[in-house]
Computed example of a mutant assay.
Amino acid sequence: MSRTEPGRRVIDGRFELVGRLGGGGMGWVWRARDLALHREVAVKEVRPPDPGLAEYDPEGARTLRERVLREARALARVHHPNVVTIHHIVDGGEGTYPWIVMELLTGGSLQDRLDRGRLEPSEAARMGREVLDALRAAHAVGIEHRDVKPANVLLRPDGRPVLTDFGIAAVREATSLTATGSVIGSPDYMAPERVSGKEGGPASDLWSLAMMLYVAVEAHHPLRRDSTLATLAAVLSEDVPPPRQAGPLTGVLTALLVKDPLARPGAEEVDRMLAVAAGQAAPPATGGTPADAAPAF
């Protein structure tokens, strides 16, 4: 980072931070100005929850840095209008945390939209098809998202969804970076097999998509409890109650929100079901199976 004027933060001599857009346990996302190309961008700053991580846990710091670099590389491999575009990465080397420069999306998140009220089933189905298409593009190059949830779906000004935050994506050649014994993902939206410590697969992302759509139309989460442990226990042991306001989405939610990932329909069938629920023309069937979601991991 460089400072060219008092109070003015410029990253890599090029990206001037304008204002903070949001943040979480892994850091902050900033609105920034690209001084070279004269455009606004989003810049993700990694800030570990424990500021002493690098000093007292160098291995943890190294893993965090590698995870951020992996996010950038994962995003760079997926070219799709419903996946956030990465422009640049600033990496100062060992002992530093990278910054990821991405396209700026100004329509808020799906979570922001749901905070104002539930979606109608047809609207949720249309949005679900686009997020599904983003997942299929990621799965096709061997990437699972692993954290599909409303906060990680950003909206363009016209309302079209864009999947972001691939920071814990599982890439086939780099799965060893998942911390042993850690809860990697959002408990509310994790598939049961991932909660139980199994590898999961594309079908696990489809569970998360379905749970997100369930919450979108029902305006509540059916398995959320008062604590993380209680929520994880509910995901593992309790059946998802049938939705009451899903209308034409009921069939796809019921089909996907089952404990056995092998019993869930594949992405191609899910797309057809969502198309029907959205009142759109369903794509022709090609005889796919649940394994059509992506190559086996």
Rank of each mutant, 00 (worst) to 15 (best):
T4Q: 15
G7Y: 14
G7L: 01
R8T: 09
R9H: 14
I11A: 07
R14A: 10
F15I: 12
G23W: 03
G23E: 05
G23T: 03
G27D: 10
W28H: 11
V29C: 05
A32H: 06
R33M: 09
A36F: 01
A42W: 06
A42Y: 13
A42V: 05
V43T: 02
K44G: 04
V46N: 07
R47I: 12
P49C: 06
P51T: 04
G52L: 15
E55H: 14
Y56V: 14
P58H: 04
E59V: 06
A61F: 02
L75N: 00
L75W: 03
R77V: 06
H80W: 06
H87W: 14
H87T: 03
I89L: 15
G92V: 03
E94S: 15
Y97N: 11
W99D: 10
W99R: 04
V101R: 06
G107T: 13
G108T: 13
L110P: 11
D112R: 13
E120F: 14
M127V: 11
R129T: 02
G142F: 06
E144P: 00
H145G: 00
V153N: 00
V153T: 08
P157Y: 02
P157A: 09
D158S: 03
F166V: 12
A169K: 01
A170I: 03
E173C: 00
A174P: 04
T178V: 08
G185C: 11
D188C: 01
Y189H: 13
V195A: 04
L206Y: 00
S208E: 01
A210C: 08
M211Q: 00
L213M: 15
Y214Q: 04
Y214C: 02
A216R: 05
E218N: 01
E218Q: 08
H221S: 09
H221L: 04
A230W: 08
A234D: 10
V240E: 07
G251E: 13
L253W: 10
V258H: 06
P261A: 00
P261F: 02
G266K: 07
E269T: 10
V270Y: 00
V276G: 09
G288N: 09
A293G: 15
A294R: 04
